[in-house]
Each structure stands twice: as C-alpha cells, then as structure tokens.
Design a binder for these strands. Structure first.
Lengths: 188, 188
DNA sequence: GTCTATACCACGATAGAC
DNA sequence: GTCTATCGTGGTATAGAC
C-alpha cells in the first residue's frame, strides 16, 4: 500500500520538459529525444509513460489548464470582478519578456495544432476557451449583457499584442496594449 | 533570343503550391514532396529551382510582400487616408472565412518561423513590418503624432481576432472586431 | 520499471542518366 | 532543363534484456 505510485516524479519531469520545449520550439520541431534529454530520462523510457508523442502534448494541455485554474483561484480572492480582471492583466504584464521571446504559450499551441490535427487542435482550443469562459464570467458579474463579446475583445487584443511583440521583439507593445485595456475597463 | 527564360512557369507553379501548403499546414509540416506533387513537378526537379527548403519559403515571403504592395497600390487610389484604412479593413473582412479555416497567412508564418530560425523569422517579420509601415503612414497622413502606436493597436486587434476566429472556428469574431475598429476610426 | 539497441519510415538533399 | 533513383540523417516507435 505504501508508495503505490511513487515514480510519478519521472512523469512530471517529462511533462515539464515537454511543456518548456513545445513552448520554446513548437510541437513539431521538438523531438522526443529532445524531451528525454531535457528531462534526464533515456529515450526508450519515455514510452513507458506516454504511448505516443500526441499523448504527451495531450498531457501538457491538461497541465496548462490546471495552471490556469490555479491562477484563476488566486485572482478570485478579489471581491470586485473588475479587480479580478486587473489581476489577470497583471499576470500578462509580468510575463511580457517571456512572451516577447517565445510568444503566447496557449496561443502558439492553438495556432500550430489547429493547422492540421483536428483532434489535438480541439484540445488546445479548450485551454483558450477556459480563459474565455473565465473572463466572460467576470464581465457577467459586472452585469454586462454582452459579456461574451467583451471577453473575446479583451483576449483578442492581448493575443494580437503578444503576437506582434514576439514578431518585432518589442515587449512594450504588450505593455501599451495592457494600459489601454485597463483604461477601457476603468471607464466601465 | 526568343524565350530566354520561358520555363518560369514551373517556378511559379512551385511557389504557388508552396504558398498554399505552408499556409494550410505550416512550414514544418509540409514536405517538399507535398509541394512537388501539388505543383505537378517531380521531386528531384524542385532542387533545380530552389537549392534548399529554406530558400523556397524565402521566395514565398517575397511573394507575400509583393502581394501586399499590389493591394496597397489599389487602396491608395482613395484620397482620404481614412478611406484607405477602410479599404484595408474591407480586405480583412473579405478573407474572414479563409482566415477562420487556416489563420492569418502572415501571422502564422511569423509565429512559426520566429520559434527557432532567427534568419527566416526576421524575413517573415519583415512582411508584417510592411503592413505596419503602411498603416502607420495612413495615420501620419491623418496628422496623428502617435501614428506608430495607433498602427500597432490596429494590427494587434486584427491579429488577435484572427487567431481567436481560427481557434474557435468562428468568423464572426473577425467581423465584430472589424466593426469596432471602424467605429474607432470614424470617431477620429 | 528501466534502459539499450534497433526497426522502420519520411524527410531533405544529391548523383547522374537523359 | 528534366527526371529517377538513392544516399544519409533523424524521427517515432518497438523489442527485449536487465
């Protein structure tokens, strides 16, 4: 009974390595040998934890969703939904340097996995959908009837700023867009 | 002297096929065999026109720039710079179904080629930069001192809407964003 | 559960006949 | 200029000893 599933550590090492590499290089450009090396695990052993490469990216998509849920839980400590959205914007501001280097972790996967692979594309979209739903909920709490539209607008402006910041290597594009979003929110 | 360089047709067939496939599937996911087949050219012959796969995507980047220049030339028939930007928005509205299926042709390449390949990433960024510069020029013609910032804002909102429309398979995200951009422009 | 060796295939690129 | 055949590499995935 003791330690029925103890070597989950290795599995975690693999998902962490994969998450980093898929983000930095993209899914297609990352080999399982890369992941194994970064995780300090022999290549052959990867297949004990993940039958296919697809199932590995599937696992990191689940991780990303859980990471969002954990952050959202913190943001929801604010009473005012407007402050919750402000906390969400703070997170985006804090990650601007990373995003300028490698793009949006979620948006990048959505774009790449939607290119051909309908199965994985849908699962990547589910992660972004989680962002959408949460932001929508905040606008609803603010009593806005057009919460869904406002949410799409907020996320689109951030996604676009992240893509341009990444393309032009300029983190200020993100900062300036976030300032505008804050003004727009404050005026509501 | 007659027909000194007549078989440029085959080269054009190859770049057209590559442009379509890189857009639909991404650069990394498209093999030269795919391109050759789509163009109706035997695989080995591809290398007569393009020494490497990189030089092929390089050529289609040049094409995309030329395609933009040709469109911009049309838009500039409008006297009022605000109308020129309106024509640019019309183009985006017209391509919303295509973008919903496969994402932004320029943004997609910028994201993918910026992931690892610094050389090609810069060249892809140059295409988006061309959009930026043109939009900036219109805002300058409108007498706006913050033309560069306004341009980044306009393009970011469109890029973000395109990414979300593609992710969620919903072209209306693009249309709604374009309506807002038009209102924002009209109020200037 | 772990790791080595390897099967198998697809890709980019080249050689060389025509 | 065109096309076939193929080389070499590197990828996913598996077999099987430990």
């Amino acid at each position: 009974m003791a330690q029925s599933q103890p070597p989950q550590d290795k599995r975690t090492d693999l998902t962490n390595a994969a998450q980093a590499l898929f983000y930095e290089q993209g899914f297609g450009a990352t080999s399982l040998a890369n992941v194994a090396e970064r995780a300090g695990v022999p290549l052959g052993n990867v297949y004990y934890y993940f039958k296919t490469k697809d199932s590995l990216v599937d696992a990191i998509l689940v991780d990303r969703r859980a990471q969002f849920d954990a952050m959202a839980q913190q943001w929801e400590l604010h009473e005012d939904p407007k402050d919750r959205l402000g906390a969400f914007l703070d997170m985006n501001e804090a990650s601007r340097e990373m995003v300028t280097k490698n793009g949006c972790p979620v948006g990048g996967l959505c774009m790449e996995l939607n290119k051909d692979r309908s199965a994985l594309g849908t699962k990547a979209a589910d992660v972004l959908r989680r962002y959408m739903d949460w932001v929508t909920a905040q606008f609803q709490a603010m009593g806005r009837a057009d919460a869904d539209d406002l949410s799409a607008r907020l996320l689109a402006s951030i996604q676009g700023a992240m893509l341009m910041a990444n393309t032009f290597h300029d983190p200020d594009i993100i900062s300036r867009e976030l300032v505008r979003v804050r003004e727009w929110l404050d005026a509501m």
